[in-house]
């Protein structure tokens, strides 16, 4: 499944510089070092963190998309950073667990 297909399933666009990126697997986490140690490249990463370091971690860990659960807002300047650094960011109205359950179904 590619990132832009999620827009048809209740996810909304925050930054989408690389819409064709393939998603393989999901990781949930809010402690950034933990995410860097455990997330795999091409994962969809679900988090409630919304500071600038999220963009750096997504770049370095090479995740396919950051999904902000519970409709967390991302400040405008960070959205611009995401676009500049080719980091896809979507928003989900559901909590992290329910977002993950939905992704599980979609990625099957």
């Amino acid at each position: 499944m590619i990132v832009s297909e999620l827009l048809e399933h209740g996810f909304t666009e925050v930054a989408l510089p690389d819409p064709e990126r393939e998603i393989h697997g999901v990781y949930i986490g809010d402690l950034l070092s933990w995410v860097m140690g455990r997330a795999q490249a091409d994962n969809a990463w679900i988090t409630i963190m919304s500071n600038i370091n999220v963009i750096a971690v997504a770049t370095l860990a090479d995740t396919a998309v950051v999904i902000l659960s519970e409709d967390v807002e991302l400040p405008e300047e960070i959205v611009r950073q995401a676009e500049m650094k080719d980091v896809n960011v979507l928003r989900s109205p559901k909590p992290s667990y329910e977002t993950a359950v939905l992704l599980y179904e979609l990625l099957k």
């Binding site: 750096a56 770049t59 370095l60 090479d62």
Partner: peptide, 29 residues
């Protein structure tokens, strides 16, 4: 909040050199 600038720059440069992506990922993290 600007921490990570060096790692992100190195990652970009190493990509241009054509190094294997797993090596680049390990190094940049």
């Amino acid at each position: 909040t600007s921490a990570g600038t060096a790692s992100v720059t190195v990652k970009k440069n190493l990509r241009q050199l054509g190094l294997p992506s797993d090596v680049i990922r390990k190094l940049s993290i």
